[in-house]
Amino acid sequence: MNLNKNRIVKNIEIVDLGLKIQDYLIISDLHLGYEQSLNTEGLMIPKFQFEKIISRLEEINSFSATKSIVINGDLKHEFGKITRQEWKEVNSFLSFLQDNFQEIVLIKGNHDNFIPYITKKLEIEVKETFSIENVFLLHGHQIPENIEDIKEDTLIIGHEHPCIGLRSGERVEKIKCFLKGEFKGKNLIVMPSFNFVSEGSDILHEKLLSPFLKNYPLDNFEAYGIENFEVFPFGKIKDIIKVSQQFI
């Protein structure tokens, strides 16, 4: 895999559903325990995601060779509690990270209220934000009050779970994607979810979630589709909309 062709900005490379900056691998929105939440709602989804996440991380690291990892929010799924599945899988996942990375950075997402109860025993700190080189990472569910004072040129957020819904008649094919645009004069990169239960939110047809996006036009944002480790530059959102309307 040629990582150089997957640069989204000059010092950031797309590596499957993650980003690589120096020796850091960044992933976002795992939502461990999501299957149990769906089961309680009556949707009988088998618990397969944990093994898939571990397998995918092992494959990514086989060619990216990163030494540190950043989880950019929403490691677990439930808002107001820790389910049995979450407790088991978060502990197992963090143990896996400790065995395979020299540094672990956890950024708090809006689903992570109870994460410190687990991470404290493993002596892993949960942060609100994190900086690497000239890049500022935060989950993206809220805009910090001091956003104007951030010195870094690039912001990276999760939370949105972006995907592109390509329609052909009645059929819709959803493809996870990265988004790249501007926010208040800075580069803004939006990460897809590292979650294998759901493809995410179709940014062409569904309501946006993040305040970094929902009050600002996406027309000039660029989308990079991800499918089986391949990166597909889709171009600007306004052009994707024009093309997709031809198939309605």
Results as ranks from 00 to 15, higher is better:
H139T: 11
V126I: 13
S55V: 06
F93I: 02
Y216N: 05
E35T: 12
K174F: 07
N134P: 07
R84C: 04
D99C: 07
T66P: 01
V190E: 01
R171Q: 12
T129H: 07
S68I: 02
F212S: 03
Q49E: 14
I71P: 01
C177S: 15
V135M: 05
F101M: 06
I189N: 00
F96G: 06
E59H: 15
D23M: 09
Q49M: 14
K174Y: 12
F221G: 00
P162W: 01
I21P: 02
F212N: 03
G73F: 06
I124Q: 02
L122N: 03
S244M: 13
Q246N: 12
E160Q: 15
L32H: 01
A223E: 04
H161N: 11
N4P: 06
E230N: 13
I248E: 15
P211G: 03
E128M: 12
V135P: 00
H111G: 04
L188P: 00
V172E: 11
G109N: 01
V190T: 06
N187K: 14
D202A: 07
S95N: 13
I164R: 08
G200E: 03
L137A: 08
T66R: 01
G140W: 06
G42N: 08
H159G: 02
S201H: 11
I226V: 15
S198C: 04
L32I: 09
N215E: 11
S198M: 09
I248Q: 14
T154D: 11
N146Y: 11
F178C: 05
L188C: 03
K81Q: 08
Q36R: 10
K242S: 12
P192A: 09
N113M: 10
N195V: 04
I21Q: 05
V70R: 01
K47F: 12
Q246S: 13
D219C: 02
P211D: 04
I189S: 00
I124L: 12
V105S: 03
V105D: 02
G73M: 08
D99W: 03
K20E: 01
K76Y: 02
V70G: 01
S168A: 13
R7W: 05
I143Q: 02
N195Y: 06
I12Y: 04
S92D: 15
